[in-house]
């Protein structure tokens, strides 16, 4: 049964790259569906399409070759002419969405709106891209979902604004390294600007998750990591952003389990400690 007050929509964002946004998005989407029995939609807003590849794995190549619809068509607002139709057609609710998992007993599913590497080029070519397109598409077709997670690109662009319009909560992954907090002031400024321009839209940072992906070398990362953690705590407190207690450890298992390969998990199973803290924190 769908949530009475609509889905919980979270965008995973940090304006600094390489902090684990796609990995965390894929794992949260999987966990929500397989372990919590939620009806989930994952939206890949990053033209690098790592989330799409993680959830679709080898079928992602088929998706490209068969020219199945993606986030690009959702932003265009129509289905372009193809072998089955010689003129543009309107999008249906099934367009731009791939079903990754389906539970025939409960009827719940894990679905994905995949991205393509030509996504940003397509938007740049448009005269005036509308950042509210995604929010309109999701509210019209996916109000029955329990959880919507949006993986953002690590740059401030129309895609960031589109993600803000489509969600009410922001999750900020960060790595404890020298450049860790560079993205924080940029993100805070971006959120303040968005709130100023959209007075009726409430958007909050639900938390900062520390992706402790340092190989600790026996000294837990040394003084540099300790300094970075202090920096993160100071910056987060200044912005009134809570920090999740459970950090993500370094593990070679992450690239595997994010794409559903459980041949080796290692310390990556500690992700579930974070997940068990995250879902109650966002109200699920």
């Amino acid at each position: 049964m769908a949530r009475t007050n609509g889905p919980i929509s979270v965008c995973v964002i940090n304006l600094k790259g390489g902090v684990g946004k796609s990995t965390i998005s894929a794992l949260l989407a999987r966990h929500a569906y397989t372990r919590r029995g939620l009806d989930v939609l994952a939206v890949d807003l990053d033209p690098q399409a790592n989330l799409s590849q993680a959830l679709m794995h080898s079928d992602y190549n088929n998706f490209l070759v068969q020219k199945r619809t993606s986030i690009v068509e959702i932003f265009h607002g129509y289905r372009p002419p193809s072998s089955s139709s010689l003129s543009p057609t309107s999008l249906s609710a099934q367009d731009g969405v791939e079903t990754i998992g389906f539970n025939p007993t409960s009827g719940k599913s894990l679905q994905l709106t995949p991205s393509r590497f030509d996504f940003s080029d397509n938007l740049l070519g448009a005269v005036r891209p509308d950042p509210r397109v995604l929010a309109r598409f999701l509210t019209a077709n996916y109000g029955h979902k329990d959880f919507i997670i949006i993986d953002c690109a690590p740059t401030e662009s129309i895609l960031t604004t589109a993600a803000y319009h489509a969600c009410g909560l922001v999750l900020v992954p960060v790595k404890p390294e020298y450049f860790a907090t560079i993205g924080f002031p940029l993100l805070q400024e971006s959120l303040v600007n968005f709130r100023n321009q959209n007075r009726g839209h409430r958007i909050d940072v639900c938390g900062v998750v520390i992706n402790n992906a340092f190989y600790d070398g026996g000294n837990d990362g040394g003084p540099e990591k300790a300094a970075s953690i202090t920096d993160i705590q100071t910056q987060a407190a200044a912005n009134h952003w809570p920090i999740f207690v459970n950090q993500l450890p370094h593990s070679r298992g992450f690239p595997k389990i994010m794409r559903g390969n459980n041949s080796y998990s290692g310390n990556a199973t500690r992700f579930y400690d974070f997940a068990n803290e995250f879902f109650p924190a966002v109200g699920l």
Partner: peptide, 20 residues
């Protein structure tokens, strides 16, 4: 469809991106 979660075939994808 394919349903193999092993090492992704990123070569063809990388070639397509480069060509684009």
């Amino acid at each position: 469809s394919n349903s193999y979660s092993g090492p992704s075939q990123l070569g063809p994808l990388a070639d397509a991106i480069r060509s684009a």
